[in-house]
Amino acid sequence: MSQKTSAPLSRRQFITGAAAAVASVTVAPGVFLMRPAEAGTAEGVRWGLLIDSNRCGDCNACVTACHEENGVRGMDRPRTDAQWIRKVELRDPETGYSHSLPVMCQHCEHPPCEDVCPTGASFRRADGIVLVNKHTCIGCRYCMMACPYKARSFIHETLTDQAAHAPRGKGTVESCTLCVHRIDRGERTTACVEACHEQGNGAMIFGDLNDPDSAISRELAEHGGTAIRADLGLNPGVRYQGI
């Protein structure tokens, strides 16, 4: 009795409540009413990171947090282990001054990985995040060759116990997703930035590069920032200060 009365209500809840993202509606078994789903990416946004390498010390908090968040675990094989973010040590041979900075996928506006991908698996989302669609990735690794930042990794071995929000599997290429699962549920920070503020030196800012009032844009307007290999004209979404 209670089930009979609650079922239509729940159906309505389902259709109206979740209709915003519904891509297809079942009209009859096997027949779908396809409707273009409204894009979930925020309008006119370009997500980016600003990293102040003067503040970045020799801690590893961002790397640990990223790999913890996304279930990236090494197999004690440094040459083939996946690496979504890594610390790069810079040393000026003349003065001996050295500092380090984290390098991850730079989320280019014109990503070379997308250009070379034969299946369209490498793509750039409307909000500027460069991702691998693992449903179509064939593991050819052209993108790894094309990326000037060495940001991508190939998964060589069968994996188990992945994080639910970060599917990863043998035979596909992967890289930093700018914590796309967090962004899609409305959070405005990434695991690395969060860890940098909590355990590190607060050297990283996440934000919308297109919004002039965001913290990242204000910092960039005030103190400037550069891209790694800016000469390539890829316009990365990750900017650095002090390099």
Partner: peptide
């Protein structure tokens, strides 16, 4: 009967929307 027969289709059709356009449907 719908979910038993068509769960594969639902997941398949909507996965590209979810991955590429971030149109995530929590019900599917």
């Amino acid at each position: 009967d719908v979910i038993r027969k068509d769960h594969g289709k639902l997941l398949m059709h909507e996965r590209d929307d979810a991955v590429i356009r971030a149109a995530r449907n929590p019900d599917h």
